[in-house]
Amino acid sequence: MATATWRTAKPQARREAIEGYISLLPWMIGFVGFTAIPLAASVYLGFTQWNIIEPPQWIGLDNYVRMFTRDPLFWQALKVTLGFVALSLPLKLVFGLGLALLLNLKIPGMNFFRTVFYIPAVISGVAVSLMWMWLLQPDTGVVNTMLYFLGIQGPNWFWDPNWALPSVAMMSVWKVGGSAVIYLAGLQNIPAHLYEAAQIDGAGRWARFWRITLPLLTPTLFFQLIIEMIDSFKVFTEAFVITQGGPLKATYFYLLYFYEEAFQNFNMGYASALALVLTIIILLATVFVNYTSKRWVFYESE
């Protein structure tokens, strides 16, 4: 099909195609040189048993058979991860947008507030995990102390099998300062004349939000949905540093299992298979979201 159109294409279309490939050139060089080979290598390794140190041994589909038929940890990790995606994704999207709308107000001192809300995104790794453990410590933590004064007995957060997952979700929501930045950029692309027109029609703030801001922000929302979804599926650091997957495997995330297999259990072949399955799951979810996007994402240019 493609070649047929190519041959019959008008010179103008052909020139555009060449320009298109030229524009993609940097990415294609990077992909072929530095992504495709590692990718192919890990697909291959998924069919092997490899302890990293000695040469890999081909074992066919064994890794995949084991994963789907007799590996309770795989299912546990998948269940926990899907639960986390379902819990954290809507929260992150809503809070990120809400924060961005707030930060988009042009009032004095906003530069200060924008910087403050960005702090959580800046502190990373060990320091932020420690901070959360300290905040959520059941007896002495700030959160439960505040709840105590409100007459509420706070939960054990990370250390309670029922609360560990919501606690990690809370942590990720706290970091929305980063995604608010992206919403903020998206908001700048909404032409002002639309607001003026709507105002002449007598639309109130709420109506303007629903009829202008939200529809015109859908390309950004679409981006955020995909990116946050990928991020949520790949949740790792929080569990790795704080909960180690516990208690009772309540936060045993997929990538934690992957990491344990790859670097602590020296089962790189199996880990590669796990990574491939996760990639396919995320890919399917992305394709699905992309499919639905035709109905709800609005591009001014199309």
Binding site: E19, F31, P38, T286
Partner: peptide, 30 residues
């Protein structure tokens, strides 16, 4: 290029590019 120009396999290449974000980074390390 992705946003404005038209060329064959654009959608496939775009999905391919997105998919590189989905692969756990540690697997590519070695």
């Amino acid at each position: 290029g992705f946003a404005r120009l038209n060329f064959p396999f654009k959608r496939v290449l775009f999905i391919l590019m997105l998919s590189t974000m989905m692969i756990p980074g540690q697997i590519k390390l070695i």
